Amino acid sequence: MATQWDDGRRGQHGRVETEEQRADRMWVDLLQELRVAQTGMQVLFGALLLAVFQPTFSRLGETDRALYISTVIVGACSVGLLISPVSLHRVVAGRRIKPQAVNVASWMARLGLVLLAATTVLVLLLLMRLAINDAVAAWLAFGVGSWLVLLWLILPLWAVRHYADRR
């Protein structure tokens, strides 16, 4: 039996919603996801910014300083991307292009997560270079980077493929 919302358009997940309703739902979902990512990124980035004021920072070698600067830049770009959907929404609000805005914001979030993973690996590499030898530090950073690729990319892609095939 059709409800007042059932105009015959069912999405791929069996929901009955208009394109605008779907965009609203996807926007709320995206904001919830970004809250988690932003919190982690802001804590990590804040710690990076404070590191320069520590007495031991002046004793870093050129390689570690270059690594630190690279990490801060990648981190800043990640922060920018993870916060940018808010600015996008403010600019496009009321212009009747929410579905398109959701697609752009989703792209920003995905790229922001890639840069967040890169920042995490670079921070780990920098810290491990200071704590242990360079070769072990590189392998540990590579291992964590691989772990993040597994958790943030391969596992979600597997889930999409595995569960979508069972529908």
Rank of each mutant, 00 (worst) to 15 (best):
M108F: 07
L127P: 11
S106E: 08
V104G: 01
L122P: 09
M108Q: 08
L115A: 03
T119K: 03
A93C: 03
H89Y: 14
P99E: 05
L113S: 06
T119L: 10
A105M: 05
A117E: 03
A117Q: 04
V104P: 02
L124N: 12
R129H: 14
G112P: 00
Q100K: 13
G112C: 02
P99G: 01
I132W: 03
V102R: 03
V102S: 05
A93D: 06
G112D: 00
A118P: 11
I97W: 08
H89K: 13
L127S: 12
L130H: 10
V121D: 13
T119Q: 08
V102T: 08
R95M: 08
L125D: 09
V123R: 09
L115Q: 00
L113H: 06
R90K: 11
L124T: 12
R95C: 08
V104H: 06
R96D: 12
M128Y: 11
V114W: 01
A117N: 05
W107V: 14
G94I: 07
R95Q: 10
R129K: 15
V92C: 00
P99W: 04
I97N: 07
A118K: 15
L124F: 15
A117C: 09
L111W: 08
R110I: 00
L115Y: 01
V123K: 09
G112N: 00
T119G: 09
R95V: 08
L113G: 04
A131L: 06
Q100P: 12
A101Y: 02
A93G: 02
A109H: 00
L125F: 15
Q100V: 12
L125G: 08
L122M: 15
